[in-house]
């Protein structure tokens, strides 16, 4: 992870197109894949998944964020991407989280997810609120 570079942070919201029937499996796959890629690229961040929307924060070098974001942009599993913030940040909010996950966990589909992601969703949610709360006019889905 690069510590010598400035931290760039990007937050966006998008609408999920994940099919409801397989949403938990898809989510687990997506997260594992994201974490593997992010760890290699020095990206940290958090992903919030609500009823039908994503909010994601990506932190890293400007180049790494740009490349990762552009890849995510091409992903057909979501649409209507809106950038909430794109700016240099004083420090990482999610240092140590190659992609924290917060949001939907209840329901049978998500038992597997909860068991496998062993992230502390409340911590991630608190951090997300902190990160997004700085943006004016942005309502954080609870």
């Amino acid at each position: 992870m690069s510590v010598t570079h400035e931290v760039f942070r990007l937050a966006y919201a998008s609408r999920s197109l994940l099919p409801e029937a397989t949403v938990a499996e898809e989510m687990v796959r997506l997260l594992e894949h994201a974490r593997r890629n992010n760890a290699a690229a020095g990206i940290t961040g958090a992903l919030l998944f609500t009823e039908d929307a994503f909010v994601q924060v990506l932190e890293g070098t400007m180049e790494a964020v740009e490349v990762t974001f552009e890849r995510i942009q091409c992903d057909p599993r979501h649409a209507e991407v809106v950038v909430l913030e794109a700016a240099v940040a004083p420090a990482r909010d999610f240092a140590g989280w190659s992609m924290a996950y917060a949001g939907r966990q209840t329901g049978p589909h998500f038992d597997a997810l909860a068991a496998r992601t062993h992230a502390a969703p409340m911590d991630a949610l608190v951090l997300l609120h902190g990160a997004l709360g700085r943006l004016s006019g942005c309502r954080v889905p609870a």
Binding site: E66, P76, V83, A86
Partner: peptide, 17 residues
């Protein structure tokens, strides 16, 4: 319709949206 939506998604260019 897919392409219109895809191309209209934001671009991040050297830190600028």
């Amino acid at each position: 319709a897919r392409l219109v939506e895809l191309l209209a998604r934001p671009y991040l260019l050297r830190g600028q949206v």
